[in-house]
Amino acid sequence: MAVKISRRAFLKGSIAAAGSVAGSTRIARAAKSVTKDDKEPIVTLLDISKCIGCEECVHACREANETKFPKPKQPFPKMYPNRVPVQDWSQKQEVTDRLTPYNWLYIQKASATVNGEDIELTIPRRCMHCQNPPCVKLCPWGAAKQEENGLSRIDSDICLGGSKCKKACPWDIPERQTGVGLYLDLLPALAGNGVMYKCDRCYNRLEKNEVPACIEACPEDVQTIGPKTQILEKAHALAKQMNGYIYGEHENGGTHTVYVSPVPFDQLNKIIEKGKGKPHLSKVKNMMADGTNFAKAMLIAPIAGVVAAFGKFYLSTKEDK
């Protein structure tokens, strides 16, 4: 009887053998570079030219984070008004071709022509982990958090699923699951709608000085993780070497995820499939920049108030004389 071996299973077997020797030192090295003692944020570099789209990272992510996935209670409470959408992925947990509450990383595909040669590119996509993440800063309850190492994550015990983080995110990354979380204990009919989910950069693994599962599982060393300065240097050297392009270094004021590609990102953005759960690769302005500038300008307010009162007092005493 012929034994069928899937590409994934084959790759897994190959990696187990070859990777056990080479990989162990590589992962150990990477893990060492993300120790909690680092003062610098952790940045991940993704070399798109190396990715073969095997989805090992996707499956590793799902396995590593399975315990964090939503376990919604059925039936969902009736929500008012009627426009509030029920978003239920619990019956579609196997979906891997987009971001969902059960799939925090997926492979985006693109065909491009470089120097007259047709090439297929596969791009692992997940949360970019912005330096000043709007999802965290604008969360009305503090449910979204940013760690000092730069990663951002959503606390599923506190999130009410209002989806503000998704609307504030320039890439619309967080995905909602209805019927789970704190809102069920508050006013499920009138406020909240579940919990938002996204890549948390395997924060629990990082706490144990382990690298995120997607990095550990990659057979092609697509991802490199480490301190920001070191990784950005590597990204620029790599881009120079392949005559390539960088994405993520300056988007939204800078992120902790940097892609290097042989194809310009504006070209890639035109050919990748975009839409719900499938983020774009466009240039992104710093969404929090206006807020930061207004915050700095706010320092004038107390001075203006005191000066105005003093000015009035000075003028009145002058008039009295």
Partner: peptide, 14 residues
């Protein structure tokens, strides 16, 4: 918030 802070301090000092 800027207006409120300025106004509060103005009224307080005044």
């Amino acid at each position: 918030a800027s207006v409120l802070i300025a106004l509060t301090l103005y009224i307080l000092f005044d």
